[in-house]
């Protein structure tokens, strides 16, 4: 199968990426090559096979209920694009 421009635009939007009109054709063409390669696995019969989400079959370890992180907000916010009163600033979330 291959993706149309509209479909690529929808996916890009979900991923918060913009596809420039002048590069759109090349982006779609290369994307479809990759999807074409991926397509080969779809035909395999996998009925009854348990999906494998992790490289090893182990279970979650739990940590004790104790504070382990010190307050590092100054160091963390030192690399932020815009900070005021210890808050990260972004364009208005709600109009």
């Amino acid at each position: 199968m291959s993706l149309s421009k509209d479909e690529v635009d929808r996916i890009a939007r979900l991923a918060r990426l913009a596809v420039r009109p002048d590069e759109s054709a090349a982006v779609i063409e290369r994307l479809n090559r990759v999807l074409g390669m991926i397509e080969t696995m779809r035909a395999v019969d996998t009925r009854g096979v348990e999906p494998m989400a992790h490289a090893l079959d182990v279970v979650q370890r739990l940590r004790p209920d104790a504070v382990t992180e010190a307050d590092q907000h100054a160091a963390l916010q030192a690399v932020a694009p815009a900070v005021e009163r210890d808050l990260y600033l972004v364009p208005k979330v709600i109009e």
Binding site: I11, A15, R42, V49, E50, M52
Partner: peptide, 22 residues
Amino acid sequence: LVGTYVLSHGYYDAYYLQAQKL
């Protein structure tokens, strides 16, 4: 884009879940 596509609604089973089984 590829990753977003294979996880997106309607394609998850055909791509992502199938790949996990394989």
